[in-house]
Amino acid sequence: MDIFCDILVAGGGIAGIAAAVKAAREGADTVLIEKNSFPGGIAIHAMHRYICGLYNSDSDAPVNTLNGGIAEEICLMLKGLAPKTKAIRMGKVYVFPFATEDLLKVLRNLSDNQIGLTIFYESKLDSVITEQGSIKTASAKKLNEQLVIYPRSVIDCSGDGAVIRLSGAAYELSPANERQLAGFCFKIKGIVNPSGIFPVSVPYYIFRAVTEKKLPANLKFSKYYPGNIDDEGFCIINLPFENNFENIQEAGKHAVIVHQILADSLVSFKDSFIDKFSDAIVEREGLRMTGQYILTKKDVLSARKFHDGVVKNAWPIELWNQDKGPTYQYIKAGDFYEIPLRCLKSVNIKNLYGAGRCISVSSEALGSTRVMGTCISIGEQAGLAAVNSLSGNTL
């Protein structure tokens, strides 16, 4: 099947939905390719619990999001499904909690009936043809049918940089042993008095099991969060990048051991059970497109503003080191930095934009830009920029 469109968005995760919806709302004939049968990508697969990167780090409870737009729209829609939902403080920052099924409903509501947007689910991009520094065609396989797409502009929101790789666009990728730890989540049911569990107690018993060599060393950086229902909670274990990311069963085996340790150590977990494993091991770091500007750690921590700044962010630089675990470097309270439009534009492919995790940033700056709330706004701005480029209206 031959498909002609203004904008092709690769990847229907949180950034891809925002990019595609924004482009369609601006009047562009937009096509979205998504390998799963649903929108949301990793946010759904990995059972994420909170939207991070929506607010600045003021001590007062936030009322509005930093960027407004689709990010704020999503929060309002989630609040409509769960009226008691509000931003909560977690350490020095605020996050917005949500239930997986609610986010899925919201993303479907945003995208499924959007005029000008055609979505091909269960479709995997397999080739890109670039001529004279521009993408001319992209091919994707949907079940037994081959889709050949002729876009005017392309936005890579795939997370793993599928278009960037296939198009010959410049990119950077840290060596495997230097990348951040990956995360794997599982849901526990049957917990007694979950609100009475001191949050530090779960990591403590896991850490102790590591020191007793009952668990691999990297699992000492595990975290626990209470669920939306009285008897449930979520545990996130962390794995080095060198693990086989296709072998999710191995991660599941670690999760079973972790749960057993909790059941043996804490009365609240004594009769609990694992209700669900996440469908994916989530990389925190991957390919980063080389753009017309590379955002740096200094830019983030100095709260730098740009003439072409399009997204505001105040999330700290959150790095999950394979040896040291999580570290946080914060921006001055009440301030924010900006992500310039140049970080969303490929340096060598004229009609290619990046959004989500694979924009043009250093490995350290990625620790701040990769969170969900920021990625929604990056996607929205990439969609707008791609549409503007069709008429030559650029910053």
Score class of each variant (00 low, 15 high):
Lys332Cys: 03
Gly286Trp: 11
Leu181Trp: 09
Gly383Tyr: 04
Val200Phe: 13
Glu178Gly: 05
Thr369Leu: 05
Gly159Met: 02
Ala43Ile: 10
Ala18Asn: 04
Gly190Glu: 06
Arg357Asp: 01
Asp60Asn: 12
Ile17Leu: 03
Ala255Glu: 05
Asn388Arg: 14
Asp279Phe: 12
Gly252Lys: 06
Gly367Gln: 11
Gly116Asn: 10
Val163Ile: 15
Leu32Val: 08
Asp58Tyr: 07
Lys79Ala: 04
Asp299His: 08
Val310Thr: 13
Val258Glu: 05
Ser360Asn: 01
Ile274Met: 11
Phe277Lys: 12
Gly27Thr: 13
Ile261Ala: 05
Phe273Ile: 06
Ile229Gln: 11
Ser201Arg: 15
Arg304Ile: 05
Tyr94Leu: 03
Cys185Asp: 00
Glu178Ile: 04
Gly16Cys: 07
Gly13Pro: 10
Leu319Asp: 02
Ile115Gln: 15
Asp29Phe: 03
Leu147Ser: 05
Gly291Phe: 08
Ile236Cys: 11
Asn113Leu: 08
Ser158Glu: 05
Asn36Ile: 00
Lys214Phe: 03
Ala255Cys: 09
Ile14Gln: 02
Ile317Gly: 05
Arg179Gly: 09
Gly309Met: 08
Ala385Met: 02
Ile237Asn: 06
Val192Gly: 00
Lys324Arg: 11
Phe306Asp: 08
Gly41Asn: 09
Leu117Gln: 13
Ala24Ile: 10
Glu131Asp: 11
Val95Ala: 14
Val267Gly: 00
Thr374Ser: 09
Phe186Arg: 10
Gly252Ile: 01
Ala280Asn: 14
Phe186Ala: 10
Cys157Gln: 06
Val148Thr: 13
Ser158Trp: 08
Ser265Arg: 07
Ala82Glu: 15
His307Met: 08
Lys213Arg: 14
Gly373Ala: 09
Ile261Cys: 08
Ala18Val: 02
Trp320Ala: 09
Ala99Leu: 15
Leu344Gln: 13
Lys298Phe: 00
Cys185His: 07
Ile135Ser: 11
Ser57Ile: 03
Tyr94Trp: 15
Glu172Asn: 13
Asn313Lys: 04
Ser222Ala: 15
Glu338Ala: 02
Tyr293Val: 03
Phe241His: 12
Ala99Asp: 12
Ser346Asp: 03
Tyr205Ala: 08
Ala182Cys: 15
Glu73Tyr: 07
Lys297Cys: 02
Ser167Pro: 12
Leu384Val: 00
Gly373Trp: 04
Ile149Leu: 07
Val192Trp: 01
Ile3Met: 10
Ala10Phe: 00
Asn228Gln: 07
Ser265Glu: 09
Gln292Gly: 01
Gly373Ser: 10
Asn64His: 15
Val371Glu: 09
Pro199Lys: 10
Asn243Pro: 00
Val95Ser: 04
Thr130Asp: 07
Val200Ala: 15
Ala182Asp: 09
Ala19Ile: 03
Glu285Pro: 06
Phe306Leu: 08
Thr374Glu: 06
Asp126Lys: 10
Asp308Pro: 07
Ile237Glu: 03
Gln329Met: 14
Gly168Arg: 11
Ala82Tyr: 10
Asn243Met: 13
Glu122Cys: 13
Gly233Cys: 04
Leu215Trp: 13
Gly286Thr: 15
Val387Gln: 10
Lys305Cys: 09
Ser201Pro: 03
His307Ala: 12
Leu390Phe: 07
Glu34Cys: 04
Trp315Gly: 07
